[in-house]
Design a protein around this nucleic acid. Structure first.
Lengths: 179, 179
DNA sequence: ACGAGTGATGTCACCTGGTGCCATTACACT
DNA sequence: AGTGTAATGGCACCAGGTGACATCACTCGT
């Protein structure tokens, strides 16, 4: 079903594709589609809970950083994301293009990102980071991930995600330290 | 029409309110509603372009900061946001509760925030900030704004938004400087 | 004062996403 | 064979959203 959706969204565009068509392509029915996915959008976001879990786990298990250094933990989470992204590199670009092409899909992606930030903030609090700092660090981590992701999918040199993300995080630290 | 929508969303909940009901309350028709607003959601986000313009303008007109200090410009944008928020303080909380209560509405809010980040990044680039730094700083500014906003609407002491936002931004700088 | 143009609104038909309800099928277990 | 259960299909229905056309009011030039 996911394959059918990805193919059709790619061929004819997201809005022009109907749920009935996806289901038919998969040999099933509209009604069945909605038993698996709550939404026409959700079919593109299947792995997102897994990514969230991995990044949270990375924060939970990272070696204890110097006190107050929330961003070191964020770095660990970004490394986990890097590992996950590299495994699906070939699907990342087409999926990204589809999502970028539709407002509805971008909205859904953003709420997934917000959910990720909330989950990471919780993990940070569990590691003795204060509420505000945890929220800020988590949102910052998500921002870095997005900026890095956009570089990564468009990069002809295929630079590893981990490197791009680390550079971006370092650049943010520099910027915060300056002025 | 906006008043009718806000009232009905507040009384019966967003999902339980129908566009036809809103229109009827305003003495108009469903069809007319959709001539003013592209969406059932959009009716709650009317001032958002204005806020975006004000924050962008603040970045454009802020005094030149020390080289590379993108976050100083973000601070100016947050001050502009503070002025705008204080003017609508009384509507902020109920509107916030409605948005928080519905996934659809949170999605819409997030994409408005993303649009704001994109616009601010453009303004930063126009002030000689590099691409990556501009994107990071803009996203960071939006994150700070959100974190500060949540404190602000729930704060019984009615601390000014400007102060909360400045504190949050300072805390972020500390965090980035540490570890 | 009259008719033409223009903008806002209403009416209607229609499509699609999404859901509740019940029937059907297939399969496992006894 | 019989019974329970999970997956699917079928159908009716609601609401968001859109296109096409009709109305109505109001302005303006003559």
């Amino acid at each position: 079903m996911q394959e059918a959706a990805l193919a059709l969204y790619g061929e004819r565009g997201y809005e022009e594709t109907t749920v009935a068509e996806i289901a038919e392509r998969a040999g099933l029915t509209k009604r069945t589609f909605f038993r698996y996915f709550t939404d026409k959008r959700e079919v593109l976001f299947w792995g997102s809970e897994l990514l969230e879990q991995q990044m949270v786990a990375a924060i939970e298990t990272a070696p204890a950083p110097p006190a107050g250094s929330a961003l070191a933990l964020i770095g660990a989470a970004l490394d986990a994301a890097a590992a996950a992204f590299e495994e699906v590199r070939e699907f990342a670009a087409p999926r990204y293009r589809i999502i970028a092409s539709s407002r509805e899909l971008r909205e859904r992606e953003l709420i997934k990102a917000a959910s990720l930030a909330t989950a990471m903030a919780g993990a940070l609090r569990a590691r003795e980071i204060g509420d505000t700092a945890a929220a800020l660090a988590a949102h910052t981590g998500v921002s870095v991930m997005h900026v890095a992701f956009e570089h990564w999918v468009g990069d002809p040199d295929q630079t590893p995600f981990q490197q791009i993300a680390r550079d971006a995080l370092a650049q943010l630290r520099e910027m915060a330290a300056a002025g």
